[in-house]
Amino acid sequence: MEKVKSSPKLKFSMLEIDGSRLEGGGQIVRNAVALSVVTGKPVRVYNIRANRPNPGLKNQHMHSIMALRELCDAEVDGLFLGSREIKFVPGEPRKKRIKVEIPTAGSITLAMQSLWLPCSLKGCEVEFVGGATDTKWSMPMDYVRFVFLPQVKKLGFEAEVEIHRRGYYPRGGAHVTFKIGKWKPEPYEFERGGKKGIFGVSCSSIEGVAERQKKAALRCLGEGKIEAVYEDAPSPGSSIVIWADYEKTLIGADALGEKGKPSEVVGREACERLLLEMERGWSVDEHMGDNLVPFIALSGGSFTTELSMHTRTSVWVCNLFGLDVKVEGHKVWSKK
């Protein structure tokens, strides 16, 4: 993908973004720094995560911004744990390989929200050491592999994921490599078409758990093919990701295991979430929607979804950067 052109006047101004608006969480920061690199527009984000119990930057935000700084020689002010304001001045992406170390169980997939688009300007390999592959409030890694990446591939975006080691809360300790190609954006109109089948992956670091999650999900669904996988990890944990494969899209859902939560409940939760998404009739699921917005903003195209506050926030941030994304009812679209 080539850098989005911005006017010379904007090169000397700094876009101001209030991090307490709408969703008011880390998503604003992640999208803002990513789009700053793509558009070349410096940005100041203030009131960071003001709507959260512990405001300010968390570890995964810091480490993804540090990775962006390394990728494009950016100038960053205010980069420290708990910081409620940062100034980010991007440079040209130069590195072909970067390493991100997360000493906590911070979400790798959330950190990647800042890196997908900047890395696609010229192509880049990103290695994560530490962090969690499957944790609360974020896409599980198997959702990224089997739903998110196949969906953005329809827009011409090429990327691969290699999981060397899973990581769960509280230790994290994952090891994952992403290989992202140079993106040549292609518009795509997401629609459903006929259903081809339901598939899934149930994963656990504890023997027997993945199989029980799988069986519960299948009993609830009444159809489908789900693979049960055992993978070692520093902390015990589990996840299940299931998706309905349609002719022109994928609809996904997931659930995470927790201490004291029966495996059967985890499997049934994922099933119920998928059935709800299928019943809604939209062309992408709710969680895909907010992640898809910046891609559609740059490639053009459209989709329909259950409009969450995260999706509305993503649209708002994109439009602040001059990317024309529109919302009409449940439809999100952009023309390039």
Rank of each mutant, 00 (worst) to 15 (best):
L117W: 06
N59Q: 08
D142F: 12
P53L: 01
A50Q: 12
A74D: 12
V43W: 11
P90Y: 02
V147D: 13
I108V: 10
W116A: 03
M139C: 14
V129K: 11
G131Y: 00
F146D: 13
P42I: 03
E85R: 12
V147H: 08
S83Y: 10
Q151Y: 10
F148E: 13
G130C: 06
P42S: 14
C119E: 02
G78L: 07
E125F: 02
G40A: 06
V144T: 14
C124K: 00
N47R: 14
K136Y: 08
E101W: 00
I48R: 04
E70Y: 04
F148H: 13
N47H: 15
R44H: 06
R52N: 02
D73T: 07
H61F: 09
P93G: 02
K95Q: 13
R97H: 13
R84K: 14
C124V: 01
F148W: 13
V45I: 15
A111H: 02
I102R: 06
K99M: 09
R145F: 01
I65C: 09
A32L: 07
V76C: 08
A50I: 03
A132P: 14
K87W: 09
E92F: 06
P55G: 09
E101V: 13
L121N: 01
T109G: 09
G40H: 05
L110T: 07
Y46F: 15
F88D: 06
I102V: 12
L117K: 00
R84V: 07
E127V: 11
S64P: 01
G130T: 08
D77E: 15
I86F: 08
C124T: 12
V144Q: 12
S36D: 03
K41S: 04
G123C: 06
N31V: 01
K87D: 08
I102Y: 11
L35S: 08
L81D: 11
R49L: 04
P55F: 05
W116N: 01
N51P: 04
A50K: 14
T135H: 03
P55D: 13
E125W: 04
K122L: 10
H63I: 10
K58E: 13
T109M: 02
L57G: 08
R30W: 03
A111I: 05
N54R: 13
P150E: 08
Y143T: 06
S138N: 10
T133E: 09
T39P: 08
S114R: 00
I65R: 00
H63K: 14
N59T: 14
R49F: 05
M66V: 06
R145K: 15
E101T: 07
I48G: 03
P53M: 03
P118T: 03
P53T: 01
R69P: 05
S138F: 01
P55V: 05
F88H: 12
V76K: 04
R30N: 06
L35I: 05
V129Y: 00
L81C: 05
L110C: 06
P150W: 03
E75K: 13
K58R: 14
E125T: 14
V76T: 09
Q60K: 02
T109K: 01
R52C: 11
I48Y: 02
W116K: 00
K87E: 12
